[in-house]
């Protein structure tokens, strides 16, 4: 005979086991789903994120660069309008780009940015190449220590490293005091708020970006070629220019682009060290947006800057993918 308590117990057991079965089935459904779909899911998450927060914003900038500046909120005209016969009308206004082209300031600023970042890149290469070479040739622990020393500044605040130069280059700064003390000059020279200061700032901030790809390239070099060249009687300098240098062109390109591209759009360095005297496109964009509130022109400046950088950026991506494939 089944006692009431027993039946209750059985019922509860039964209930539990159905729950278990149900639970298991649920787990299996989820499991199957993941087994078959996890790849798609794991691509989808970063993919969707980047489309929303990287790709779409870019098209919004493109759209606004073709709009008209208005004194309103938001301060630009809308690109699409419903006209009277209910057809969607699209008005593209090239005024902003024409304005950039006609106004001397922008063309000059562009050329100046390219000039400054090109010279800075060359300076970084001239200092960075021998440094990378010396680090590769150092032995054991010393090599790691030197590499760490190159990487360390990269982890400290960029802003504060630029700030450090404000103290050195100021009229009563360290460098002027030192030069006066050494008797080289008797009046402080003005170094802050000049192109000179901007060059120093860029080379200082981006030097590690030049050294690291060069180091990686130099370390992988096959030395049998060097031996062959020296055995055949080539002078070490000839060996360097005919063997080593051509073989490290990938490293030079990678390092050069890593310096050139961000330096062209740089804002902090020309703003803090260059003051109002040095025109660079990143700063003009920032001011156009934050001080003049001319969004369409700011957007047009951004698009024009991107067009300027698109070739170096594609070059970089090409070099990067080739390196990964190797």
């Amino acid at each position: 005979m089944i006692k009431p308590t027993d039946s209750a117990l059985t019922a509860s057991r039964l209930n539990e086991s159905t729950k278990m079965i149900f639970h298991r089935r649920w787990v299996r459904v989820v499991d199957n789903f993941f087994q078959s779909r996890w790849k798609g899911l794991s691509v989808a998450i970063p993919y969707v994120w980047l489309v929303i927060f990287f790709l779409i914003p870019f098209f919004i900038v493109l759209k606004i660069s073709f709009a008209e500046s208005l004194i309103a909120s938001p301060p630009f005209s809308s690109l699409f309008e419903w006209s009277e016969d209910a057809a969607l009308k699209m008005t593209l206004i090239f005024d902003n780009f024409a304005y950039l082209w006609e106004d001397d300031l922008y063309v000059k600023t562009y050329l100046n940015s390219v000039k400054i970042s090109t010279i800075s890149t060359i300076l970084c290469l001239l200092i960075g190449y021998p440094m990378a070479y010396a680090i590769v040739r150092a032995s054991g622990t010393m090599k790691y220590l030197l590499l760490l020393m190159v990487i360390l500044p990269f982890w400290t605040s960029f802003l504060l490293r630029v700030y450090a130069w404000m103290g050195i280059l100021a009229d009563q700064g360290t460098l002027n005091s030192f030069l006066i003390w050494a008797g080289v000059i008797d009046q402080p020279i003005r170094m802050m708020y000049s192109e000179f200061a901007v060059y120093i700032g860029i080379v200082y901030s981006y030097l590690p970006f030049m050294i690291l790809p060069l180091y990686a390239n130099l370390e992988k070099l096959d030395l049998t070629l060097h031996e062959a060249a020296s055995d055949l009687g080539a002078h070490p300098i000839t060996v360097f220019f005919t063997v080593t240098l051509p073989l490290t062109i990938p490293g030079i390109i990678a390092g050069g682009l890593l310096v050139f591209i961000p330096a062209t759009g740089e804002f902090v360095i020309p703003d803090l060290l260059g003051g109002g005297n040095v025109l660079m496109i990143g700063r003009v964009l920032y001011d156009e947006f934050n001080s003049n509130h001319d969004w369409p022109v700011a957007a047009a400046v951004a698009i024009a800057l991107l067009i300027l950088l698109v070739i170096p950026m594609m070059l970089y991506q090409h070099a990067q993918s080739r390196q990964i494939n190797n």
Binding site: L50, F289, W295, M313, Y316
Partner: peptide
């Protein structure tokens, strides 16, 4: 492309485009 572009994109452009978004 979307993975490698942010690495070299000038900060002013990234900032401006996100604000507009």
């Amino acid at each position: 492309g979307m993975i490698s572009a942010p690495l070299v994109m000038p900060e002013v452009i990234t900032g401006l485009s996100l604000l507009l978004l």
